[in-house]
Structures are given as structure tokens and as C-alpha cells.
Amino acid sequence: MASRKRELTPTDCVAQLPEPDLDPANEMPTDDLRSIELRHSILAIAELDHPSETALVRAVVMNLRDSVPTIEE
């Protein structure tokens, strides 16, 4: 005897839908999100930037030579 065609179910319907995913276009920019992440904030938390790094090198030179060489303009 021929088997009857299987009837459509709600589960079949939802299975047709695209798989849910995070929409990168609508997500928060990664940098914003990571601004609260510890491992992406090491330099910010340590307050290291070019001026502070330069100052630290000058402190080393001062400790060694009493003065930092001046640059002739």
C-alpha cells in the first residue's frame, strides 16, 4: 500500500527559517564593548601613553646623568 505523504508540521515551518545569528551590523562596535574588558584596557588602566612613556625614559636618563641632553634647534 502506498504510504501517505507526511503532513507539514509547525516544526517543519520554523526549520525553514534562517538560523538565528548575531547581526554584526547592528551590534555595538567592538572597540566600545572592549573598552570595559580588562585585557584590552591594560595600557589605559596603567595610564601609559606617549607622553607618560617619554617621561619615564627621561626619568631614567635623569637618574643616570643628572640631565637630559638638549636638542639644538
Binding site: A46, L48, L56, V60
Partner: peptide, 12 residues
């Protein structure tokens, strides 16, 4: 990088 600067901080 922070390790390197920690050395400089101690040196200073």
C-alpha cells in the same frame, strides 16, 4: 610592554 616599563620604573 608593561613588563619593559616596569624595568624602567625600577631603574629610574
Amino acid at each position: 610592554f608593561l613588563r619593559g616599563l616596569a624595568v624602567l620604573r625600577e631603574w629610574a
